[in-house]
């Protein structure tokens, strides 16, 4: 639908205040989806340091001096990486919980309480993330 003139803020940005639960769920799901696919590519790239590492001597591997172990250990040693990992967990957990909600919606289950299930997935995401912080940060200091 072409615009005869630019309605600007009316069309786009200022509307977020009027969004209902379903729209927020969609926006968060899309955003977390982008983050996860981006992470998948990064993840495989980092893990592929295992390819050169597999050529190393057994003694080197046992001492943990190979490229792969060194890369992961130095990355995990950075506090920033640990914090980002907590963020990744939050993003993944939300995407999973809201994904489960969407699967139910696709099956036609509980469409009347779709807003409540969205709030529930938000709260659960928060709870799981907070509960996981000690495990994720352990050994970073």
């Amino acid at each position: 639908m072409s615009q005869s003139y630019n309605r600007g803020l009316i069309e786009d940005f200022s509307r977020w205040r009027e969004f209902e639960a379903g729209m927020w769920a969609w926006i968060f799901h899309k955003f977390t989806g982008w983050v996860l696919i981006g992470y998948l590519f990064t993840h495989i790239a980092v893990l592929s340091t295992a390819i050169p590492a597999s050529g190393a001597e057994t003694a080197v591997l046992q001492a943990g001096n190979d490229v792969y172990t060194q890369t992961i250990v130095s990355l995990e040693g950075l506090l920033l990486v640990r914090v980002l990992e907590v963020g990744l967990l939050a993003v993944a957990v939300f995407h999973m919980l809201n994904g489960a909600r969407l699967l139910l919606v696709d099956l036609g289950v509980g469409l009347e309480s779709q807003d409540k299930s969205f709030y529930a997935s938000l709260v659960l995401t928060g709870a799981i993330t907070v509960a996981s912080v000690p495990t994720f940060i352990a050994g970073a200091f």
Binding site: A50, A56, T69, F136, A138, G139
Partner: peptide
Amino acid sequence: HADEVSFL
């Protein structure tokens, strides 16, 4: 745990 990853 994340800080005990090794190739082996």
